[in-house]
């Protein structure tokens, strides 16, 4: 078959070609999330992050179906705020407007701007959870030691899939000062 002496020289070229494989795979690792979104869009697949902007939701007459909504609050270590929900869970009737209060207190002696990021779990419920007003639509500046009440008004659309009996609304407050807001602010309000 092949003679091993020239084979060694060919080996060097073969190795370079083979090195392209790991290089490509490394790049694919980074491209995997955008590729996933692209494939889901192209084939019209449902996916977790698919918050449908401005999807028309028929607000039908209130039904008798009850859904449990749990509230969850998070503050990262670099934000010296207390952030709690008034109550941990609420039984709501689908299609009815609800109001929920949260309380935020700035423990530090400086004025800090924060911005809340909402998440709905399970993700399938996200498009059926309609916030008509939310503190998360705006930056929230809070003075030193100040305590404030935050309000979200929402309803759960009757179109919520039948197998979802409970969902969780989770907020994470992130620091959004001048230093961190050099980049254009997330315009979350237009999404709803």
């Amino acid at each position: 078959m092949r003679d091993p002496q020239p084979g060694e020289r060919r080996g060097g070229r073969g190795a370079l070609w083979l090195a392209l494989v790991p290089a490509t795979m490394f790049a694919v690792g980074f491209a995997i999330a955008p590729l996933y979104s692209l494939i889901c869009d192209v084939f019209g697949l449902q996916r977790a992050a698919a918050a449908v902007p401005g999807a028309p939701v028929a607000v039908a007459t209130p039904q008798n179906r009850l859904v449990t909504v749990r509230f969850d609050t998070n503050v990262p270590n670099d934000l010296p705020w207390d952030f709690v929900a008034d109550i941990r869970r609420l039984e709501v009737r689908v299609g009815t407007l609800q109001e929920m209060k949260f309380r935020v207190r700035n423990r530090s002696d400086q004025s800090i701007v924060g911005r809340a990021i909402p998440t709905i779990v399970p993700w399938q419920a996200e498009r059926h959870f309609i916030k008509t007003d939310c503190f998360c639509f705006r930056d929230q500046p809070i003075g030193p030691g100040e305590s404030r009440e935050m309000i979200v008004r929402f309803q759960v659309a009757p179109a919520l899939p039948d197998d979802i009996g409970a969902l969780t609304l989770s907020y994470t407050f992130l620091r959004h000062d001048a230093a961190t807001s050099a980049a254009p602010a997330l315009n979350l309000s237009s999404k709803e």
Binding site: R2, P4, E8, G11, A15
Partner: peptide, 15 residues
């Protein structure tokens, strides 16, 4: 890579 290149390029004649 070394193993693959070895297996493809340096087998004895006839193997």
């Amino acid at each position: 890579i070394n193993i693959i290149v070895t297996l493809f390029n340096t087998r004895a004649p006839g193997m």
